[in-house]
Write a protein that binds this DNA or RNA. Structure first.
Lengths: 343, 343
DNA sequence: TTATTTTTTGATAGCGCTATCACAATTTTT
DNA sequence: AAAAATTGTGATAGCGCTATCAAAAAATAA
């Protein structure tokens, strides 16, 4: 009836205090909280009273240490450049994981470039089930996370790392190649590319797809602006005049995001340039905006919803390897072109 | 030279293993990791070799328990309804906290409505420094979080709770009131309101502001659509025809978000309704879109940047109460109307 | 040289909880 | 009724780490 262990006084109310107050052993209190059906009604009520009277709050950290059980917690490290299509991928992933009882923590590294050690420590201080690197391009951060690797890591959106368990690479280059080929097939020949956020791998992938398609069809690839500005409405509006000045013969303009294309559309309205008759415009991402703007934007998107679900499956398989690992068929993950009036 | 404690074998490599391998005590290894300057070069090198050879990874949970030190970690619980202006507030808050060395974890409750217990457990399992409830409206979740309160909680965006330390309430109602008064001052009389996301307190606040302004000027308040749909481009496009059908006399339409207003603008283009000559349109939030669309949107915004910084200050003061708590002047937190061509 | 201060080092004892197992209390079976 | 199975309960011993303090080693002063 008496734990004999000595205890320091940290001011915190512990299981032991509750047990003493209720006149039972600590284990009975522990059980009353975690598996109440294994404690008799009489004691359970007494314990509940003690908890209420003392205002006891469980210490989850101690519980984690003692039980060595992993939290059903998955951290997603990400930057803030995510455009619409990547955001859908992330949402789909979160929803799928939530269905299996996993909570997703999002950490935006944007704020912590100067304090990586702290980020790493934060990541590893919570008995995570896994870490997802979502379009993280900072190699220092990746290196440090992988170096302390004690759990499954999954890398989405940038080049593969052999030291990482799962690498998922949405093929933005292919999507842009398909879109560009579609534009060419429609008869356009003076096709420009407007790319922003040039510092990010994702956008260079899209640029690369355009480049491949143009070369494959023996078309010139010089009509291009590759800017370091954000891929936003404002940037689109701002850069259209520059494109038109440099290449007045332009008959189609492909933008690396729908937001850029939206800015371009607005600027066309302002200048009374008729889309698509004087200039065809395409976006990337199949955002909601692209569906309702005037004219609606032709755009392309990867099946982000499906990709998210598939990624969740892979991740859960990694966490619980007992699940059968029949290789899933990924051929359905092909980009989809949305044909609309802007072309 | 020898710890005598018995140890179970959990398969994990511990400080003890490293110490044994390096021929030193566990405390020396612990120090070599946390305060290397307090360990002699010779031992430090030996210990580093042991760590590398054995592939030792520190167990942060055990460290947290033993040292009882709080993680510099703040969790933000939020939903996904956040529109542009709330997003800026959140970013500003994160940036300010990051400057003081705090890492922000974002948890989107949207996915976890069915699993609140899990959410609470996730929250309390990481020795957080504080919890931020960011536009969380679900009373069950709030109640459960507050019930286990062991650390500072801050509530942003909805009505005050007396049991919560800090309540921050951006005055969206005032902002909308000011915007509506401005529209009235411009001579418009048949003013409608388009409100989406009616289920959220935030949007009802904005609606309420419009209502107050209209009543104060003895103008009718029946020209209103208060929909349960998302506050998006698509909803704006979809609902404009309904407004025009119901109230053909409409000369100004105020929307509760810039996105709704954007959808309305697009639908106006499609129907060749000239903005602002046939219909004036206003948004809410001063989003980037509102600045570059055609015509640019008149809109209103709260000083989200400042509010975020101020909130961070309050929060840090709560975490470290030793800082002097001179009441800060909040009168500068007034909404700003952005006058643009759509009105 | 010896006495004193400073720096390094490690054995010990928990942090608050849970796994384990043995023993008591109850229920079921023979 | 006694024997066997089931359930309820609590003392004990850690989980992997760090605070503490005393002892040892090194540096400085006398």
């Amino acid at each position: 009836m008496q734990d004999t262990k000595k205890r320091r006084n940290t001011g915190q109310i512990t299981l032991f205090d509750v047990a003493k107050y209720a006149g039972v052993g600590t284990m009975t209190v522990s059980r009353a909280l975690r598996t109440p059906e294994r404690v008799s009604d009489k004691l359970r009520k007494k314990i509940q009273t003690a908890i209420d009277d003392l205002g006891y709050k469980p210490n989850v950290v101690a519980s984690l240490l003692a039980s060595a059980s992993a939290n059903r917690l998955i951290a997603v490290v990400t930057t803030k450049i995510c455009d619409h299509s990547t955001r859908i991928l992330l949402n789909s992933l979160q929803t799928s994981l939530a269905k299996d009882g996993y909570t997703t923590l999002i950490i935006e590294t944007y704020h912590y470039h100067k304090n990586e050690a702290q980020l790493i420590n934060a990541l590893y201080s919570q008995n995570l089930a896994a870490i997802v690197l979502f379009y993280v391009e900072n190699p220092t951060i990746i290196e440090k996370i992988v170096h302390r690797k004690t759990l499954p890591i999954i890398n989405i959106g940038i080049q593969s790392y052999s030291c990482i368990n799962i690498n998922i690479q949405p093929d933005d280059s292919l999507a842009m190649l398909m879109l560009t080929e579609y534009v060419i097939k429609q008869g356009y020949r003076h096709i420009g590319l407007l790319c922003a956020n040039q510092q990010y791998h994702l956008f260079q992938q899209r640029l690369h797809g355009w480049h491949r398609a143009m070369l494959a069809h023996h078309l010139p690839t010089h009509r291009i602006i590759n800017a370091a500005k954000p891929a936003s409405f404002a940037t689109g509006s701002e850069l259209l005049p520059e494109m038109l000045l440099n290449w007045p013969e332009l008959d189609a303009l492909i933008c690396t995001t729908d937001e850029l294309a939206g800015g371009v559309l607005n600027e066309c309205h302002r200048r009374h340039i008729r889309v698509p008759y004087q200039l065809a415009v395409c976006g990337f991402g199949d955002s909601e905006f692209s569906q309702v703007c005037v004219p609606p934007l032709t755009t392309v998107a990867l099946p982000a919803e499906l990709m998210g679900q598939h990624t969740a499956t892979l991740l859960l398989k990694q966490i619980c390897p007992d699940i059968d690992d029949t290789e899933t068929d990924l051929s359905f993950l092909i980009p989809i072109i949305k044909t609309r009036a802007s072309l």
